[in-house]
Amino acid sequence: MTISRPSPLSELLQGVAPWDEETARQILATHGGLEGPLLPILHALQEAFGHVPRAAVPLIAEHLNLSRAEVLGVVSFYQDFREAPPGRHVLKLCRAEACQSMGAVALAADVLGRLELDWGGTTADGALTVEAAFCLGLCACAPAALLDGEPLARLTPPLLAQVTDALAAEAVA
């Protein structure tokens, strides 16, 4: 079985490159003209490699005239930046109040329990990483999630199970 829903990030994740210094240097060079370039650079690295590789830290530090500790401090401050690549798909599940009012706590417990994951964990088959989000701006159609950047609304445990089952099946196919 395969899923037919096209998703921009899944294409992108299939295109996630292994570490390559040349690509990293190109990313640094294309962000040269920006004011306050560090966050855009980190986002671009994560887009290319699925995470912010440790090996990129000294390059960034040198390029921006910062210490490695300063760069690492920034990377670790922000929830979004990963230190290791995620699964092939990323589910950001909302944990905030409007979603809670529509059953988000039970929804999260169900999906994490079923997949035997903690927040931020990746399934053993590498198909899916489940991350916590605090509001996605979809609070009038709660509970909500983003799957590879695509919004999902009015989720229930069975609906979400269908979604994650399809991703797992795709991994087998």
Partner: peptide, 12 residues
């Protein structure tokens, strides 16, 4: 940044 849960006017 519209971080407040229950809000989506900025996004909209």
């Amino acid at each position: 940044d519209e971080g407040d849960s229950g809000t989506f006017a900025d996004r909209m």
